[in-house]
């Protein structure tokens, strides 16, 4: 069963701003990165998944349920960590997380136990009886995660969980999220505007821009089969580029090198033959792995054309 699926999902705010436009996607369980620039529609997407916002048109299903008509059922099985500060400074962390557990339907004693457990899993076991106001930013982020985790959800929605953290805090938070996704067996949607950050921990990525879907795929499939060849010749780079383009290849200049998309094994031969025909001194010919970021950059260029 798909974790999340949408069909032509569109959300237009009363002011006329379209935050999501004709978004169709199907996401399998796992750790999912939802990436896009600020204002791309990530937060709107999260709120729509929670049933807090009603889509203007289109269909949406989360954990096989419809968040619009069956909101409480969805919200009982989802944990949400908002982007902004949302903690009462004058409350003790353990009590706050317990209260939030009860608000999701846990009985009193269970809520207390699971609150302690959740705080232990995020690394705040020793400090759990301190007031939240005295916590550092990193610790507050952990409390926010703990309150989303306390009721053992099937899906966690994390909105910019690394916001405001220093590099060490970021790494710790990301590995914690990765653990939740793998060891705890809870699916996670991580929102971020930093692709490099989430690509390390995600199974699949969904990229949106301007409310439109840029790309949604599993990480492996993104890096597979779309490797490029980098060719460097001592002279005649322009000639070679022209010749290769005539052969029907997509050629891109990258500094002194030329990048050619490797579609099949013939590409190698084709390039070698062309270089030989032009009698150019070949300096380097090697395969390069695309970083996910570059793929998105290409998609974005394509989308703007």
């Amino acid at each position: 069963m798909a974790l999340i699926s949408t069909r032509s999902l569109t959300k237009t705010y009363p002011g006329g701003v379209t935050a999501l436009q004709d978004l169709t996607l199907e996401v399998e369980p796992g750790v999912i990165g939802l990436v896009g620039a600020n204002g791309a529609g990530k937060s709107t997407m999260i709120k729509t998944l929670l049933g807090l916002l009603e889509p203007t048109s289109g269909e949406i299903s989360v954990l096989g349920l419809n968040p619009v008509s069956d909101g409480n059922a969805v919200r009982a099985r989802v944990g949400y960590m908002p982007e902004h500060d949302c903690l009462p400074p004058d409350m003790i962390a353990a009590e706050f997380v317990t209260h939030m557990g009860r608000m999701t339907g846990l009985p009193r004693t269970v809520a207390r136990e699971r609150a302690s457990e959740a705080l232990r899993h995020v690394g705040l076991y020793e400090e759990r009886y301190r007031q939240i106001g005295g916590y550092s930013t990193g610790m507050k982020q952990r409390v926010k995660l703990a309150q989303a985790l306390v009721h053992d959800p099937d899906l966690l929605l994390l909105d910019e969980p690394t916001n405001g953290l220093d590099p060490a805090g970021r790494d710790a938070m990301l590995s914690l999220i990765h653990r939740i996704g793998t060891e705890f067996g809870i699916s996670v949607v991580v929102c971020s505007h930093l692709l490099g950050e989430v690509e390390r921990i995600c199974d699949s990525l969904v990229a949106i821009e301007g409310g439109r879907l840029l790309r949604a795929a599993r990480i492996e499939s993104m890096t597979q089969g779309i490797d490029v060849l980098a060719i460097e010749v001592s002279e005649g780079t322009a000639e070679l580029s022209e010749a290769l383009t005539r052969q029907g290849l997509v050629v891109q200049a990258d500094g002194r090198a030329l990048l050619v998309r490797l579609s099949d094994e013939d590409t190698y031969d084709l390039i070698l033959r062309t270089v030989a025909e032009l009698d150019l001194p070949l300096h380097r010919l090697d395969q390069r792995r695309h970083r996910v970021a570059e793929l998105f950059a290409q998609d974005r260029e394509a989308a703007h054309v």
């Binding site: 807090l52 059922a73 989802v78 949400y80 949302c86 903690l87 009462p88 608000m103």
Partner: peptide, 18 residues
């Protein structure tokens, strides 16, 4: 007012609390 000030409402409404 405290819940409003501390931005707690999103946490409540993201749960089965109407």
């Amino acid at each position: 007012s405290r819940d409003l000030r501390n931005n707690l409402l999103p946490l409540y409404f993201a749960r089965p609390v109407s």
